[in-house]
Each structure stands twice: as C-alpha cells, then as structure tokens.
Simulated scan of single mutants.
Amino acid sequence: MVPAAHAGDSLLVNRVQQEQAMNLPRKGMSMAQVERQFGAPTSRLDSRGGGSAKQPVINRWMYPGYIVYFERSHVVHTVLNTPAGNNLNPQVAR
C-alpha cells in the first residue's frame, strides 16, 4: 500500500510544476544572458560566500515573482516567491 501524500508534498509538487511551466532563467545561463532575456532585476542583493573554492560567491537577483541565484556568474536556481515560503524577504538573514 502506498502512503497518502501529505498536504506539504502536494504543495511542493504543484510549485515545481508551476515553475516548470513558466519562462524563468535556466540553470547555467550567464548573468549577461539573464539580463538580456529578462531585463534588469528589480534589485541585486548583497553577495554571500566566496571565502574559499568550496564556498563560491553566491549572487541573488530579485525579479517580480522570483529570485535568481547565481554561483559566481551562472544561474544555479530560480525560486518563486510564495506567500507561504521563506523567500519573500531574502535581505533579512535568519
């Protein structure tokens, strides 16, 4: 018997499906490609990391509805801003 999905699991699946259906910056795109295709970000957050080769610089660009995360100068992930998520105000360190 397969266990029933939890509500959180369903929300995550829905979010992933929503992200896949949207035109968002893709993994591997350069900063220049993202800016050319999606325009300038509404803000560029302070860089994080960069203390060693194992901790590369992470840059974050905010757009309406999503945040693009770059490792050095290439996209590693794009995350939708959601009311229930913890990414509505990434400037605040937790």
Rank of each mutant, 00 (worst) to 15 (best):
V79E: 15
T42H: 04
S43M: 03
V79I: 12
L12K: 09
R26E: 13
Q17V: 10
T78E: 03
Q20T: 02
Q33R: 14
N81S: 12
V92K: 05
E35M: 15
S52C: 06
P90I: 01
A40F: 11
S30P: 00
R36V: 04
V79H: 09
R15T: 15
G39Y: 09
N86L: 11
A21I: 05
N14A: 14
P64Q: 06
R15E: 14
Q17C: 13
P83E: 12
A40P: 03
V92S: 05
V75E: 03
A21D: 09
M62K: 14
Y66H: 13
P90E: 03
Q55P: 01
E71K: 07
G49L: 12
K54S: 02
M62I: 14
W61E: 02
M62N: 13
R26G: 09
P56L: 00
P64V: 06
A21V: 05
M31S: 07
V75I: 02
H77Q: 13
Q33G: 05
P56D: 02
S43Y: 00
I67A: 04
A84M: 06
E71M: 04
M29R: 02
S73Y: 09
V76Y: 01
Q33I: 08
R36D: 06
N59H: 15
Q18M: 13
Q20G: 00
L80K: 01
R48Q: 04
S30F: 01
S47C: 09
G49R: 10
P83N: 11
G39I: 14
V75A: 02
M22R: 13
L88H: 04
A93G: 03
T42G: 06
L24A: 02
M22T: 08
I67E: 04
N59W: 10
P56H: 03
S52V: 00
M62V: 14
E35G: 14
Q37H: 03
N14V: 07
V34A: 07
S52Y: 00
R26H: 09
